[in-house]
Design a protein around this nucleic acid. Structure first.
Lengths: 221, 221
DNA sequence: AGAAGTTTGTGAATGCGAGAACAAATCACC
DNA sequence: GGTGATTTGTTCTCGCATTCACAAACTTCT
């Protein structure tokens, strides 16, 4: 049983290893890999220890071997069929991104409720009516769905996805969606990320203010 | 000092409160707001207690009042100038999204290294050369930058942003970027989110398999 | 072969967040 | 004015995640 925090970092390690492999590097230490992944080396080693003992003391890790082990653990040695619902600006970006960049996933359908879009072909995949969801999902055994619709439609789309057999949802719509037990939802929200940054930014600004005031009154304690 | 986990949820509460206000609701209990935000009511109350005592026992929270208090705490009562670098599919989506939907942020510039794009106008903002970054950042006192470039360019863009005075970065590029102390970075990564879902999906599949095997051999312990 | 130097894997300590549970405060009703 | 119902704010406990520190294991050099 791998801790959730570790699961969230495994893809980062995988990408770092891929970058090293492309650079022709065959072996790396936990320190090097940790730097490439932007984490602490102790944390990296503990994370990897949940998968097994794939390193060699005194030497480090074999890049290709570790890469395969992590990919297998995550489950991206096979290809997961994915449907994307909502082909606006964001849907376009996601379709292109998933289509070319990332191995492990295959976009089997792009769906949109707007008939205007049904003529389009994005990243080689035609946009089809949202009502085709059930047919496509059962035909390709789709387990992963992406919601890129406006907030108002998100819950409906989620319900239909779940009914069609989808058990993992990636939600880009700025809305909280509720799903039955056994269905995983991950949420990505631009606006929330910006607001978190704004909070810290504001705190920095206040910090400065206090510094200025302190300097002005000559405080040195 | 508000805990980081709480800070990350405040924007969710803010959005839920806005939705309630738009529905004409003037007052709500922690239970109602928690449901709308998709969290536990005890957690919600504890989060809000870090801001102060803005509720009334036996009654609940005044929607508008609480909304303002949270907005003030986050820092979105003012407008933060934002620059977006990399106007591909994703950049388009972000520009449109930030432009219309979210209050608290103002896109002051869209930058791209590709001269082909400098003719475009997205969401009312013209796309300008990346080299204009420093001039724009100092003119508008930009503190928040968004990176929507390919991975290879991300570190360069981040360095230039930091040099130009940006102290908070939202990174959509699939790359780890390193910045000096005092600069905040948040990372959003489609591919990583999908891989996390794939991991859980795979575990569900294995679970099923084991169930089938158990059923087949008639195990009931 | 043995000693010195590296690097992994893990046990222990610390800190943080989640949730349960309850006391304090307010409202409604008599 | 007092009693019961309701709801907040807070304390307490538990579990998870991070980090340190070190023993075990491997390599290299003499």
């Amino acid at each position: 049983m791998i801790p959730e925090a570790t699961v969230a970092r495994l893809p980062v390690y995988l990408r770092a290893l891929t970058a090293l492999a492309e650079g022709g590097i065959r072996t790396c230490s936990s320190e090097e890999l940790a730097t490439a992944a932007g984490v602490n080396s102790a944390k990296l080693r503990k994370d990897l220890s949940y998968l097994g003992s794939y390193g060699t003391r005194g030497v480090g890790y074999d890049v290709d071997y570790l890469r395969y082990q992590i990919a297998r653990e995550i489950g991206v040695t096979q290809d997961w069929p994915v449907v994307i619902v909502g082909i606006g600006n964001l849907g376009h970006a996601l379709a292109n991104y998933s289509g070319s960049r990332s191995r492990g996933f295959r976009v089997v359908a792009l769906l949109d409720a707007d008939p205007e879009r049904h003529a389009e072909v994005v990243a080689g995949v035609p946009v089809r009516p949202f009502d085709d969801l059930e047919a496509i999902a059962s035909e390709h055994a789709v387990a992963i769905g992406v919601i890129a619709t406006p907030a108002a439609a998100a819950q409906d789309v989620a319900d239909r996805m779940v009914a069609a057999g989808v058990t993992s949802i990636l939600n880009f719509a700025p809305a909280v969606i509720s799903v039955p037990d056994g269905v995983d939802v991950r949420k990505v929200d631009l606006s929330i990320e910006l607001q978190i940054l704004a909070y810290h930014e504001q705190r920095k600004a206040h910090e400065h203010e206090r510094d200025h005031v302190a300097a002005a009154i000559g405080g040195d304690a």
